[in-house]
């Protein structure tokens, strides 16, 4: 924890935020507290209200009801003061594609009311920090996705803000670019910045966040550390894909008996999926049971629950996004 940690209360505080867009209740009484110097991950599917929450907290949208303080300042009463204390990196890269990387940072520096000399120094500093000095004079339109995201992040850090909002910062990035963004965020947090991060990826929250809030239908439905949430959400699953439809009924009985649980069946995909405790032992038991029964499997895999399953369990509503996160074992 660094110098910018506030002793006088949380960096982000929201109470009962409500916001309706037409017929959609984007926020339905969202409460949130983020201690200074920590990373809070807002996890949820598309349309859960994550982006709306960030838009309200960063003064871009006014809530219909509720209250919020960011860096100790009332968001509704003093939006201009909040803007001088936050950095916002939105869901889509918000840069001028015609201008060069350096020109973009100069522009945003001037709009932050830095003088010309300070804006230039800050631009050079940020370009170096995000490894963009070589590309500094090229138009942003020629940058790769990862470079754009890094420049976008740099543009959100012009004033070294105590609170940084990151709205799905790695969506659409390849693994290498994602790792670069994660590194950059970790360095900021080490320097004492408070980060509110939205993501659809359990893995991303796991990597970066001290605390996670799961958001659905505009409110927080679960919170805790990533570890707490994972164990609360139930353990691993074993998936079995069969080769013949005729085997399905027998396989459900055999696998169910082997791990003492009822498998879910996908008859079209010839797939069954069962919740297990103890990854390796359960995998071995399933393989043994299939072998003993003389059932051929195309694939057997043990994996962590996907966000879909998390949501199914927490809300009873299927989410539209999924990212299977597991290792496959050929059988």
């Amino acid at each position: 924890m660094g110098a910018r940690v506030h002793d006088d209360g949380p960096a982000v505080e929201a109470e009962g935020l409500r916001k309706r867009y037409g017929g959609t209740q984007a926020l339905a009484g969202l409460d949130l507290t983020v201690p200074a110097g920590t990373v809070c991950g807002l996890l949820g599917p598309n349309g859960a209200g994550k982006t709306t929450a960030v838009r309200v907290l960063s003064t871009l949208a006014r809530p219909d009801a509720g209250a919020a303080r960011v860096a100790g300042v009332d968001v509704l009463r003093h939006p201009a003061r909040v803007r001088a204390r936050i950095g916002l990196v939105g869901q889509h890269v918000a840069l001028d594609e015609v201008l060069s990387g350096r020109q973009n940072l100069l522009l945003f520096g001037r709009l932050h009311h830095l003088g010309g000399a300070r804006a230039r120094a800050r631009a050079a500093d940020l370009l170096a920090r995000f490894d963009l000095t070589d590309a500094a004079e090229r138009p942003v339109g020629t940058y790769s996705g990862g470079m754009r995201r890094r420049l976008d992040l740099a543009a959100g850090l012009i004033l070294d803000p105590p609170v940084l909002f990151l709205d799905e910062p790695t969506t659409g990035l390849d693994p290498r670019a994602r790792a670069q963004v994660w590194d950059a965020v970790r360095r900021l947090v080490a320097d004492g910045t408070t980060v509110l991060l939205t993501t659809q990826y359990l893995e991303e929250a796991d990597q970066l966040a001290h605390t996670v809030r799961i958001v659905d239908a505009g409110r927080v439905v679960a919170d805790g550390t990533p570890q707490q949430l994972k164990s609360a959400l139930g353990g691993d699953r074993v998936d079995v894909v069969l080769t013949r439809a005729d085997d399905l009924a027998r396989a459900v009985r055999v696998v169910g008996a082997a791990v003492a649980a009822t498998p879910l069946v996908d008859a079209v995909g010839l797939r069954l999926s069962v919740a297990v405790t103890g990854r390796v032992a359960a995998l071995a038991a399933v393989l043994r049971a299939l072998d003993d029964a003389g059932l051929a499997a195309a694939d057997v895999a043990v994996r962590r629950p996907t966000l879909d399953e998390v949501f199914l369990r927490l809300t009873g509503v299927d989410s539209p996004t999924a990212r299977p996160d597991g290792e496959k074992v050929g059988a």
């Binding site: 960063s58 803007r83 890269v93 918000a94 840069l95 945003f108 709009l111």
Partner: peptide, 17 residues
């Protein structure tokens, strides 16, 4: 559409500008 306007709005920039 690109979100640049929103970025301007999130800065301490005069909104009329």
């Amino acid at each position: 559409a690109r979100g640049v306007t929103d970025r301007f709005r999130s800065l301490p920039t005069a909104s009329s500008a």
